[in-house]
């Protein structure tokens, strides 16, 4: 039972991380109807920038702050220079262009920081651990990530539902022409949403770096999972993204932990060892297919709800 609790905590923490990346992506996708494959790159940029500033300042929090500012700046620059010109274009053009950005930035990261994995240590104040169950130390840093993630989720919820900008974002998601006709500078609104989304992804990368490692392409495989999250949650919905992210985080983590053992009850061990890992990798896609079957627009369609 206690092992189950630990695995749930791991699942929650993975879900929180997914949410931080998904939040920006779902807004960009929902509000602007723009498919941004390069969102995973923002995650990587956030991590590498924080790593770079950490080497200069030797202070995690200062490095994180500087990393976020520069990640925001890069996000805005990309929006102005590249993405802005793609909003009116076909989805295929957007996919092509943003895929090109992935290739370019991954290669640039490799040139600047090298192809090997790098490590960013957690801040000293959080680099201790406690015995969560007999024989297993749980890093406090991971608990801090969960806490910060939940705080960001609440903050975002308030920003989207209780502020004027949030109201415009929700309105822009469903009736962009009407919002524009009422005299709102929709271009600037889009730019804010985009820059902010990029910064959130960068934030996710930066706080994930001490748990995992930094390497070129680090955001690419996460991006696929994040797309699953925003589709399950309903495109454009912050609330949906949060619930779907936690759901996917739990399912993925618990699936990996117990799928093989459960199969061993039915099959012989070697067959279970063959099927288990394959099945647990498929679970989130099965969930997505099932949800799309019953609710084609996701759990919380953005229509008027955000």
């Amino acid at each position: 039972m206690s092992l189950f609790l630990v695995q749930s905590l791991n699942g929650l923490q993975f879900g929180i991380l997914l949410f931080l990346i998904a939040a920006g992506l779902t807004l960009v996708f929902g509000v602007m109807g723009f498919i941004n494959l390069a969102h995973g790159v923002q995650y990587m940029i956030g991590a590498y920038l924080t790593f770079m500033f950490f080497q200069w300042t030797a202070n995690f929090f200062v490095a994180l702050l500087l990393g976020l500012i520069v990640a925001l700046a890069i996000g805005l620059a990309c929006e102005i220079l590249i993405f802005r010109h793609l909003y009116a274009r076909d989805h295929l053009d957007q996919v092509l262009a943003t895929f090109g950005i992935i290739l370019f930035v991954n290669e640039a990261v490799k040139v600047i920081w090298g192809p090997s994995s790098l490590i960013l240590p957690p801040p000293d104040i959080l680099s201790w651990s406690f015995e969560i169950i007999d024989g297993l130390q749980y890093p406090v840093y991971r608990l801090a990530v969960i806490a910060v993630g939940i705080a960001v989720a609440i903050g975002l919820y308030l920003a989207v539902f209780k502020t004027r900008v949030g109201m415009l974002i929700r309105a822009g998601a469903t009736h962009p022409e009407m919002v524009s006709a009422l005299g709102v500078d929709i271009k600037r609104l889009f730019m804010i949403v985009f820059g902010f989304g990029a910064m959130l992804a960068g934030f996710a990368g930066a706080i994930a770096a001490p748990m995992f490692s930094l390497e070129p392409n680090m955001g690419d495989d996460l991006l696929i999972t994040v797309f699953v999250v925003i589709i399950i949650g309903g495109i454009g919905s912050i609330r949906g993204a949060f619930i779907a992210a936690v759901l996917v985080g739990f399912l993925d983590t618990l699936g990996r932990a117990v799928a093989t053992d459960l199969l061993k009850l039915v099959f012989d061990p070697s067959a279970a060892n063959q099927i288990g890992p394959a099945l647990s990798s498929m679970l989130i896609y099965i969930l997505m297919a099932a949800i799309l079957f019953f609710k084609p627009e996701g759990l919380f369609p953005a229509r008027g709800a955000a």
């Binding site: 092992l3 630990v6 695995q7 791991n10 699942g11 923490q13 993975f14 169950i133 297993l136 991971r142 748990m211 995992f212 495989d221 996460l222 983590t253 618990l254 990996r256 932990a257």
Partner: peptide
């Protein structure tokens, strides 16, 4: 990426 489930 995250081996926490396996480590538990």
């Amino acid at each position: 990426k995250d081996f926490s489930a396996q480590i538990a």
